[in-house]
């Protein structure tokens, strides 16, 4: 297994190289789901007060436009034109835990100086967007836990060895 650091031509010519570093473990209670997809950092943040409610929050890559609303599209009261709410702040904080600052910054196209908090480098505005797409991706994500296991061989997993996490 050749690690993430691409050195020499061997990396391109090896079958087992680590492309997607394993995500780091983090507590899932507050932000059960987040991803870098569809040109956004997007995720679902559990409401602090109502166990039945979740917020859908996202930052767009490039523009850093942000949005936060409940999954039923009610706007989050904490978000204003210029300021991200606590759900959005949590989303960024948890994303940097999960993926590392560098990967999140690269995806969002942020110039983050060494050691800077990523959230302070995002200078977008509030742009409301429908929550449905992200919420359905969250449900799709949860649906993996409902897929039954299988005892049939999957030899293709030879390309995906488990690794020690840091």
């Amino acid at each position: 297994m050749i690690d993430g650091s691409p050195d020499g031509v061997a990396w391109e010519r090896a079958s087992l190289v680590r492309v997607a570093p394993p995500v780091r473990p983090r507590k899932l209670a507050k932000v059960p789901f987040l991803e870098l997809a569809d040109g956004r950092l997007q995720g679902v943040v559990s409401s602090g007060s109502d166990i039945e409610r979740v917020y859908v929050s996202s930052f767009a890559a490039g523009t850093h436009a942000f949005t936060c609303s409940t999954n039923n599209n009610r706007p989050c009261g904490g978000v204003s034109a210029q300021h991200a709410c606590k759900h959005l702040q949590l989303l960024v904080a948890e994303a940097t835990l999960q993926y590392g600052t560098q990967r999140v910054a690269r995806y969002l196209r942020v110039e983050a100086p060494e050691g800077a908090e990523l959230i302070t480098c995002l200078r977008g505005h509030h742009e409301p967007a429908p929550a449905a797409a992200v919420f359905s991706r969250f449900l799709r994500h949860l649906a993996y836990l409902e897929v039954p296991d299988s005892t049939a061989p999957v030899p293709e997993l030879a390309w995906f060895p488990a690794t020690a996490v840091g």
Binding site: V23, P25, R26, L145, V147, D149, T151
Partner: peptide, 15 residues
């Protein structure tokens, strides 16, 4: 011989 179980998961389930 080998015997395997493959389970679906999400990326935040590790270790």
């Amino acid at each position: 011989v080998r015997a395997a179980v493959t389970a679906a998961k999400v990326e935040t389930i590790t270790g």
